[in-house]
Design a binder for these strands. Structure first.
Length: 595
RNA sequence: GGUCCCGUAGCUCAGCUGGAUAGAGCAACAGCCUUCUAAGCUGUGGGUCGAAGGUUCGAAUCCUUCCGGGAUCGCCA
C-alpha cells in the first residue's frame, strides 16, 4: 500500500473519532507538500469543513494531532491556513529504498487489469523517406508500447505500410520516365531516398505540364486533372489493381528498395514491430466490407458506380468509399486493416498512433465500422499527437522544408562529436568509442527533445538552432548515469546492493529530497500509461537527475569518512542509476557507462 | 462558414481530474574545476498565465463570450 492510501484510511478513521462523521476515502485530498513549506505530504482540509463544523485551522490541528497519535508514520504536523502538512518518518522512505534494493531489476507496479493492446505506429508511405514527423510518431509508438508492457499489458506493435495507391504510382512514373534503369545499387543511394527523388521528380514534371496546359487556355482545375503525367499515374494504379504483371513487377522492386532503406532507419532509431501489415494485402478485404455494406443497404452507389456512405445523420458529410473506376481509397483499406487486426489479435484496445490532422478520418472510420455492426469499433482509439512544425509553420515537402530523418540523426551525431572535441573532455577515449558514444548521445538529445513534450501538443523544431546537449536534455540525464557509474566502479565494491550498515545519522535535506523523489517513480509510470504520454517519464527522470546532481555536488560519497553514510549514499546512487537506465529505456534511449 | 485543438518568461516547454508566493531549460549577466566526470553546481534579472466576465473558501486549471494562431471538413494518405 502506498503512503497516500495509508493516510486516507487513517484519516477517515481519525475524522470519524474526532467529528463523528464517516467520510469516504476519496474525499481525503492528499498531495505532495509544495517545496516552500515544511512537511512531506499535505492534507487539504477545506472540503472537510462542512463535516467537521470547525474552522480550517482548528480542523487541521485536531486531525493532525490525532494522526500523529495513531499513525505509525506521521511523525509531526504543521498547520498553515487550511493545509495540514504532515511530516512522514524517515524510516518510511528508507524502507522503500530497501525494497528497491532487494531486486535485480526495477519492479514496476503493474496494472491490476492487464489488457491486450495493438499499437499501430510509424505507418509510412513507400514513396518517400521518413522525416521528422515520422520520428515523433515512431518514438511515441515505441515508448507507449514499452510503457504498456512495463505495466503488465500484452502489446502487439504493428506497422501498416501504405505500399499502394496513387502516391507510389507517381514515383513509379517518375522512375519509368527518367530512371534509365538505375537502382540504389548502381547509384549507391539509400533505397528510400532513391525512390523519393523520383516522387519529387514526378511533382516537378506535373507542375510543368500544368503550367503548359494553363498557358494553352485550360483552367487550373482542368489542368490538374488532365495533365498527361497524372493520367499516366492513374492508369498505373488501375493496372496495378488489375494485377498487371509488369506493373506489379516494377512496384515490387521499387518497394523493396524502400524497405531496405526504412529498415536501416528503424534500426538506427531503435524501433521494431511484431507485425507488419501491407495495404496491398488489406485493401481487398476493405472492398469486400464495402460491398457487404452496399448489399445491406448501409451504403449507396451513384450513377458513376462510386460507392458512398451517408454520415449526415451523424452530423458529418457523405464520404466516398470506392472510386468510380472501382479503385479503393484510404478509408477502404483502413476498413480492411481494422477487420484484419481484429481477426488476427482480437485486441481489447486497438491504438492508432497518427497525427491530429487525421482526427476526422478516425471519427469516420469508427462510425462506418459501427454501421457495419462491428463490435470492435469501440476498441479503436486514435492516439492523436501534435504535429512537428517549423518556426515558419508546417513542413512542406513541395517547398523542400521537410527535415529528413536520416539527415537529422547524422547531424545530431556530428553535433555531439563537435561538442566532445571542443570541450577537451578529460575522459580519455579511443576514437571508435567516441564515435559510438556520440551516436548514443546524439540520438538521446533528439529523442528526449521530442518525447519531453506532451504528445497531444504541437511542437516547434527550429533547424537553425541545434538541439541542446545541456540542461533539460537527454545527454544531461545520460551524464548523470555516467557519473554514478564512475563512482560505483571506483568504489571497488562488487555489490552495492548487499552493503549492510547502521543508520546512526541524520539525513541531509538533499538526501531526503532525493529519497522522496525515488518513492514516486511508480506514479510517473502509471501517469504515463493513463495518458499514453511518455513525456511524463522524461520529466520525472529529468527531475530525479537534477536532484542527484545537486546531491553529487554538495555531498561527498566515496570521500565520506563515515562508512555508514558512505554506504547509504552509494546505495542511493545505485538506485538512481538503475531508475535512469530503466526510464531512459522506456523512452527508447540508451545510457552510456561513461561519457 | 461548421467541427476540433492551442495561447504560461525573449525562445522551447512543465504545471491543467481546482489548492499555498506560477516552475524548469535555453539565451543574458555574475560566481564555482590542485577535491568522487564542469554535458555539472550556485546566484541575478525576466510573468496583468491571450482578454473580459462567471462558478468557488480558493481559478493558469472549470464554464461563457471575445481576440489571436493552427488543423480539418479531398475521388491525397
Amino acid at each position: 500500500m502506498d503512503i497516500y492510501q495509508l493516510l486516507r484510511i487513517e484519516s477517515v478513521k481519525a475524522f470519524d473519532e474526532l467529528f463523528h462523521h464517516q467520510i469516504e476515502e476519496d474525499q481525503i485530498q492528499i498531495e505532495q507538500t509544495s517545496a516552500d513549506h515544511e512537511g512531506d505530504l499535505t492534507l487539504v482540509v477545506f472540503p472537510l469543513l462542512r463535516f467537521s463544523r470547525k474552522s480550517p485551522v482548528e480542523t487541521a490541528n485536531l486531525l493532525g494531532k490525532k494522526l500523529q497519535e495513531v499513525s505509525e508514520f506521521v511523525e509531526n504536523y504543521k498547520v498553515i491556513k487550511g493545509f495540514l502538512n504532515l511530516q512522514i518518518a524517515q524510516i518510511y522512505w528508507l524502507n522503500h529504498l530497501s525494497s528497491l534494493l532487494k531486486h535485480d531489476n526495477i519492479q514496476v507496479k503493474t496494472n491490476p487489469k492487464p489488457l491486450t493492446y495493438l499499437i499501430e505506429y510509424s505507418s509510412p508511405n513507400t514513396n518517400k523517406p521518413l522525416h521528422l514527423g515520422h520520428i515523433r510518431n515512431n518514438l511515441i509508438g515505441h515508448s507507449v508500447s514499452e510503457i504498456l508492457l512495463a505495466r503488465g499489458h500484452e502489446v502487439i506493435k504493428a506497422n501498416l505500410i501504405n505500399d499502394r495507391g496513387i502516391h507510389i504510382c507517381k514515383s513509379m512514373v517518375g522512375w519509368l520516365k527518367a530512371g534509365q534503369g538505375k537502382t540504389p545499387e548502381t547509384t549507391g543511394q539509400k533505397g528510400d531516398h532513391f525512390v523519393g527523388d523520383y516522387y519529387v521528380l514526378f511533382d516537378q514534371l506535373y507542375k510543368k505540364e500544368m503550367e503548359q496546359l494553363i498557358k494553352n487556355g485550360s483552367s487550373a482545375e482542368d489542368a490538374e486533372k488532365k495533365a498527361p503525367i497524372m493520367l499516366e499515374a492513374q492508369q498505373i494504379l488501375k493496372l496495378w489493381e488489375k494485377n498487371d504483371d509488369e506493373t506489379r513487377r516494377i512496384w515490387t522492386e521499387m518497394n523493396s528498395w524502400v524497405y531496405q532503406g526504412f529498415e536501416k532507419t528503424y534500426r538506427r532509431m531503435g524501433v521494431s514491430f511484431d507485425k507488419v501489415y501491407y495495404e496491398s494485402d488489406t485493401y481487398l478485404l476493405g472492398k469486400k466490407l464495402v460491398k457487404e455494406g452496399l448489399e445491406k443497404g448501409l451504403f449507396f452507389s451513384r450513377e458513376d458506380q462510386s460507392i458512398w456512405v451517408d454520415l449526415q445523420p451523424d452530423g458529418l458529410d457523405e464520404k466516398l468509399l470506392i472510386r468510380p473506376d472501382g479503385t479503393s481509397v484510404y478509408m477502404t483499406q483502413d476498413l480492411g486493416t481494422a477487420q484484419l487486426k481484429h481477426d488476427d489479435f482480437c485486441p481489447d484496445q486497438s491504438i492508432y498512433i497518427v497525427g491530429n490532422e487525421q482526427e476526422y478520418h478516425f471519427k469516420v472510420l469508427r462510425l462506418i465500422l459501427k454501421k457495419l455492426g462491428k463490435s470492435y469499433a469501440d476498441a479503436i482509439k486514435h492516439l492523436s499527437y501534435g504535429m512537428v512544425d517549423l518556426p515558419e509553420g508546417k513542413m512542406k515537402s513541395r517547398e523542400g522544408t521537410v527535415v529528413d530523418a536520416d539527415d537529422l540523426m547524422d547531424e545530431m551525431k556530428q553535433t555531439a562529436l563537435d561538442y566532445i572535441n571542443e570541450s577537451g573532455k578529460s575522459t580519455p577515449m579511443e576514437e571508435s568509442e567516441k564515435v559510438a558514444l556520440c551516436e548514443i548521445v546524439g540520438l538521446a538529445a533528439l529523442k528526449f527533445f521530442i518525447l519531453k513534450t506532451d504528445v497531444k501538443k504541437r511542437m516547434v523544431f527550429n533547424p537553425e538552432e541545434s538541439i541542446d546537449f545541456q540542461g533539460h536534455t537527454g545527454p544531461f540525464v545520460q551524464y548523470t548515469f555516467a557519473r554514478i557509474n564512475s563512482i560505483l566502479e571506483k568504489s571497488k565494491i562488487s555489490n552495492v546492493r548487499e552493503l549492510i550498515f547502521d543508520f546512526d545519522f541524520e539525513l541531509e535535506i538533499i538526501e531526503m529530497d532525493l529519497l522522496k523523489k525515488l518513492y514516486y517513480f511508480n506514479d510517473a509510470i502509471a501517469e504515463a500509461e493513463r495518458e499514453m504520454d511518455p513525456s511524463q517519464l522524461a520529466n520525472y527522470i529529468y527531475q530525479l537527475a537534477k536532484l542527484y546532481n545537486r546531491f553529487y555536488h554538495d555531498l561527498p560519497i566515496l570521500k565520506e569518512v563515515s562508512a555508514n553514510k558512505k554506504y547509504f549514499r552509494l546505495q542511493m546512487s545505485f538506485v538512481v542509476s538503475r531508475l535512469i537506465e530503466y526510464f531512459m529505456n522506456l523512452l527508447g534511449i540508451q545510457v552510456p557507462k561513461r561519457m
